[in-house]
Design a protein around this nucleic acid. Sequence first.
RNA 1: GGUCCCAUCGUCUAGCGGUUAGGACAUCGGAUUCUCAUUCCGGUAACACGGGUUCGAUUCCCGUUGGGACUGCCA
Length: 534
Amino acid sequence: MHILKIQGFDMRTGLTEDLIARVLGAAPKYTLAELEAKFPPRALPDGAMVTRFAPSPTGFMHIGNLYGALIDYKLASQSGGVFMLRIEDTDTKREVSGAVDVVKRAMSDFGLKYNNDEKYGPYYQSQRKDIYHSVAAELLRTGRAYPCFLTANDLEKIRAEQTAAGFGTGVYGEFARDRDITSDEIIRHLDNGEVPTIRLYSTGDPGKRIFCKDAVRGSIGFPESNEDLVLIKSNDGLPTYHFAHLVDDHFMRTTHVVRGEEWLPSLPMHYQLFRMMEWTPPVYIHTATLDKIDAETGKQRKMSKRKDPECNVAFFLQEGWPVESVMEYLGNILASGYEEAKLKGAVKNFWEYEMKPKKIPMSGALFDMKKLEWWAKEYIGAMTVSDLVKSVVTWANEYGDEKQKMQVANQDYLTAVLAIERDNPRRIRKDFITWKQTLGIEEFFFDELFVPNTEYKYNADVLRAFLETFDIADDKDTWWNKIVAIAEKFGVKNGDVAMDLRVALSGRTNTPDLYSIMQVMGKDRVIKRIKAVL
RNA sequence: GGUCCCAUCGUCUAGCGGUUAGGACAUCGGAUUCUCAUUCCGGUAACACGGGUUCGAUUCCCGUUGGGACUGCCA
């Protein structure tokens, strides 16, 4: 084994082209220079950020994914940059069919438009093998990576040994058996039919510290990583996350990498990778995770797929939450000044608000449904009646059940129903939270869904008296004066008369304005429902 | 075990050495209203703890505690 001294480090000698081709399964398609030319730096104005949302297609879009994607999108769009969608489908074992559609659908539903310029594609990592292998070949050629023939069994043994001895686990230093493997040995393994992984020949020294930058946390010091991490997996020849991140974010010319804080511990490795290639690392932004308040215990805990349906973004669509308010809620978490700006009228919506990367919170935020409800109420409260109707109808037709579809079939009637208490902008009802719940509140307007209240003790005399003088053409004052007169005649409160009518008409003790309800229901329906309880 | 991150009302946060520690949601009380909702007024409520540095710490440093992440041929 020849050891070369390069920059003070012991380096491996590189592999020959023939051997590289055998190790990788094929000769590399590109040289580094060719890749640089194929994916040139982007011609973008100063300050333009290039970001990407890079989910692995699990068939499930987590609210945390949406949160991260929103940051990516905002950063790119407000700076005149580019926002990409890259599918990290390097784990063939976990592949789920249709999973990419789930992601794309969510992106489009929540208004996150991405711009995947073909020039920098493909955007599926599974289709970028040539690129990864070409970079890996270069590393193999220069002794900065090596083929490793350790089997799963070997790895398990090493780990057990390390655990027993109290060492950190991993393939590093003396535990990296094949670190200094010779060409002859490689050939022997290859002839034996073994397929290697490609590992980094790490020159990191844990005794030294490396300082990495995070845009919100500042400089963070770590011990250098001496882990010979896997670059290319043996089972499918695809890269690991680390290597794909290095290669893709360099050649896609990503300027800002937004990812969950679970990536913080691998930051030094990524720094070392970029440094080794003499590439400029992107600006990193590690976001805190979204937790939630447990409804039963009132305690804080992480969002879980099993316990929290709302951790799946599809939940918000199915339940008919206004997507804009979900984005406003999320947006206000990542840019806390937004709420105040909106309340002051400085901006109309989150898309207009300029967020500051440095202000992204670094401590975990709790998902607060109550606050989301408030955003939703505010949002719906500010809608015009026709927009409200449109949203409700669209939702019902896509996600609604038969009852809900029936409710939106007659749009004139629905419009009249939803227009109640919306004429005065200062006093708009704010009990609508979701499209689904909105239709639920209004069920009593529909004869097919109306449930008469048989528990309530109606004052039949009062109701009869009302029927005698009832005229649908009365204006509101006339109508009310009649009610006052009836109350006086029977010695009850005005409110009691109103309540008898309210329950007879709606089956409920709480409704919006009674006069409006009667106007919308129409003469016949009013008379019929009152008579029904007499 | 090792490494790293985090810590202001119940929740999300503002604050960047001197503030009556501000706002929003929630909550409580009052006013208005035919109920509910709305709207308007008002209240309760926080700097995790211990050391420093300083004339002065919520703010800077160290430690403790608590919470979290990572320690895979998963991302």
